[in-house]
Amino acid sequence: MIKVVFFAALREKLACSELSIESDNISTVEQVKQHLIMQQPDWQAHIHNNALLSAVNNEMVPANHPVKSGDEVAFFPPVTGG
């Protein structure tokens, strides 16, 4: 299983803060996104947003970053703290 978490505006748009997906056939962050869109077609515009950032196990990563079972994958908008 892969745990997927969402934050801030994205969490509100999806009305979802976290979910789990089967890790079969998923080996990159991009494939996690494709899997989510397949399950929830109405998420497409929000997930395929170029500004969206990704993290795997608390590290910011690019879309081609590897993902394996047990990982926590996060998607969120550009950060605005400080």
């Binding site: 993290a55 969120f76 950060v79 605005t80 400080g82």
Partner: peptide, 19 residues
């Protein structure tokens, strides 16, 4: 880089700030 997000509450309602 630090994952914080601000939602602003103004006279026009609330909205997430853009980076």
């Amino acid at each position: 880089n630090a994952p914080f997000w601000k939602k602003e509450l103004s006279d026009n309602g609330e909205k997430w700030l853009d980076a």
